[in-house]
């Protein structure tokens, strides 16, 4: 009896092995393990066996039933996986087609540079302020120690509105607005558009500046130097050489211009990057700060110039032509 059981097992396994589909497996399951299967027949005959054989045969028959059942299940799983893989691999999607895609947006390079600069100063604890484009003579000139007949007015080719107001020629009026609105200490930067009525290949009537102002007790010129060296090294690279050169602005004293050395293959040249200085005591008087108690430094730089250096742009007019093929590059 046991032999016939083993025979059933082996024959069944052979058949299961040759199954081609999960449907085959289901069929084989009922064929080998169903009520009319040879195994069922053996189990049915057990009561007719001698008592000592009954348990042996019965136990073995059950074992085989378990084994076959597991075997079929396993075969079915294998076949299922194969079928899934087969059907998936016949997917006709062309994955090389361009996807459904929104275009890449882009920030104007002026925005990118402005944000870079603001981020560096925010690490030093400066907050960002804005001021109006249309200014009164007081904020743009008078309070900055540029009275009406001051020679420095010749440095500013000013646009006037018909109502006698000016389009600000620099972002420095924001200094005045800030100081008039709050007590020292002050630590601000102010990015924005400025206007000069000289347009040629290298000048645009509208361009962008960032102004910075730090006022507190005991600030020194060496603080100005350290701050701007930190800033320029962060912006342009720690290896850059920086020099401070004497200059003149009516609202700072001493005044400097700051040059950065740029090296190309076999020559190096100094490029003027920004202006700075210690706040003129007359400016403090205009904003009712006590010039004997407080000192401060201010600085300003042209954003276009930085963008032109960083991105190697050779024509300032590209910024305002606003061709998307230009802006998309940044």
């Amino acid at each position: 009896m046991l032999e016939s059981l083993e025979k059933i097992k082996n024959e069944s396994i052979n058949d299961i092995q040759s199954a081609q589909s999960t449907a085959d497996c289901d069929q084989l399951k009922s064929f080998f393990l169903g009520k009319k299967s040879p195994l069922a027949a053996v189990l049915k005959d057990i009561p007719s066996l001698p008592v000592e054989q009954r348990s042996v045969v019965g136990k073995r028959a059950n074992e085989i039933k378990q084994e076959l059942s597991a075997y079929i299940q396993e075969k079915k799983q294998t076949l299922h996986t194969q079928q899934l893989e087969h059907s998936l691999s016949h997917d006709s999607t062309d994955t090389s087609l361009p996807p459904f895609k929104i275009r890449n947006g882009a920030f104007h390079p002026i925005t990118s540079i402005t944000r870079d600069i603001c981020d560096i100063f925010s690490r030093l604890g400066y907050s960002v302020k804005q001021g109006p484009n249309v200014e009164s003579d007081f904020y743009n000139f008078e309070a900055l120690n540029i009275p009406e007949h001051h020679p420095a007015r010749a440095m500013h080719d000013t646009f006037y509105l018909k109502n006698k107001q000016v389009l600000r020629t620099h972002t420095s009026p924001v200094q005045i607005r800030e100081m008039l609105s709050k007590k020292p200490p002050v630590k601000i930067i102010a990015p924005g558009k400025v206007y000069r009525c000289d347009a040629d290949v290298s000048h645009s009537p509208v361009f962008h500046q960032i102004e910075g102002l730090c006022v507190d007790k005991g600030l020194t010129f060496s603080d100005l130097k350290g701050t701007l060296e930190f800033f320029l090294h962060e912006l342009l690279g720690p290896e850059k050489n920086i020099r401070f050169r004497s200059s003149y602005f009516p609202f700072t004293e001493p005044s400097v211009e700051i040059d950065v050395e740029f090296k190309s293959k076999n020559k190096s040249s100094w490029m003027e990057i920004m202006g700075a200085g210690m706040v003129q005591r007359k400016v403090f008087k205009h904003v009712n700060y006590n010039a004997d108690d407080f000192t401060g430094f201010a600085f300003g730089l042209g954003i276009e110039r930085i963008a032109m250096i960083k991105y190697q742009i050779d024509d300032i007019r590209l910024f305002y032509e606003n061709d998307s093929r230009f802006i998309q590059q940044f």
């Binding site: 030093l124 604890g125 400066y126 907050s127 200490p185 002050v186 630590k187 601000i188 730090c214 507190d216 007790k217 005991g218 600030l219 020194t220 010129f221 060496s222 603080d223 130097k225 350290g226 701050t227 060296e229 930190f230 020099r243 401070f244 050169r245 004497s246 004293e253 001493p254 005044s255 400097v256 210690m278 003129q280 005591r281 007359k282």
Partner: peptide, 29 residues
């Protein structure tokens, strides 16, 4: 004003002769 004298000194002695420092006071903005 006296800062103008400071400017004369700084520009003729050279700005290199002035050290670089960062403001030490912490200002909350």
């Amino acid at each position: 004003d006296w800062p103008c004298i400071a400017e004369e000194i700084a520009r003729l002695k050279g700005f290199d002769s002035i050290p670089s420092t960062l403001p030490t006071q912490h200002i909350i903005q």
